[in-house]
Amino acid sequence: MTKWLEEHTPKLVLAPSFVAIMIFVYGFIAWTAWVSFTRSRLLPKYEIEGLIQYERLMASPRWETALNNLFVFGALFIIIAMVLGLLLAILLDQNIRTEGAIRTIYLYPMALSMIVTGTAWKWILNPGLGLEAMIRGWGFESFTFDWLVNPDMAIYTVVIAAIWQSSGFVMALFLAGLRSVDQEIIRAAQVDGIPTWRVYTAIIIPSMAPIFLSAFIVLSHLAIKSFDLVIALTGGGPGYATDLPATYMYAMAFSRGDIGQAASSAMIMMMVVFAIVVPYLYSELRSKDD
């Protein structure tokens, strides 16, 4: 008995976590997937009815806005955060004496809750007393910056706040990548008289492809999960102009009492995440086994 116990201790230790993950991750995903094929409204029903919830989603203008917003927000957020992050990393890589302090400043927003970030930017961007009022106060009477309350522009305020929060992190990723490039090659290029910008574009940046991929994965993951920031900054408004799939799902689940819509929108979010993450994780795990 004790021998058996000794032999199986490792498995027994891992078992509770394994069971928990199987139930609370995979079992729950299965539950949500199942319910997304039913007519569930306020209470879950379990008779499969086909794609009715997904058809309702596609017919919903609010969902269409949410999806459009995800693409606009996601594309701008990912591209700008990566470009800015790379630029900052390259600037910081020039033997800057105060690098440590500057890095700390660029990165601290990442330690904040999205709710705090949203609250701060909501105050800065509010037209009545914020940035707009300040610049008007400086004498530019006709200056207008009302994106926060303009349904066509509000989604861009989410982009601004999200970039402010995450670009420092992208910088940290790229900076680590720049430091890991073989210094010998760079020195050889400099000896050959190749200008610095060419060294970057032709040697250093191409060798950082894996970092670009990681940054892309992390940022797209952040974009799809964005929920708190929208809630705090715009509340999804004006109207539902800044709704994202995450806020749509939450509204359906907890204020509209429409479980079928909540489940199907959550499933679509998961499919988007998996379409991006699964190939990445798969290749990572495989390369590790080799």
Binding site: F18, F24, V25, G27, T32, P44, A262, V277
Partner: peptide, 20 residues
């Protein structure tokens, strides 16, 4: 088991909110 746990890190939590 490790791979299964790793995938669990990446799910959007919306997908477990209702059953939880």
């Amino acid at each position: 088991i490790f791979s299964l746990m790793l995938f669990g890190c990446f799910i959007p939590f919306q997908v477990v909110l209702l059953p939880m």
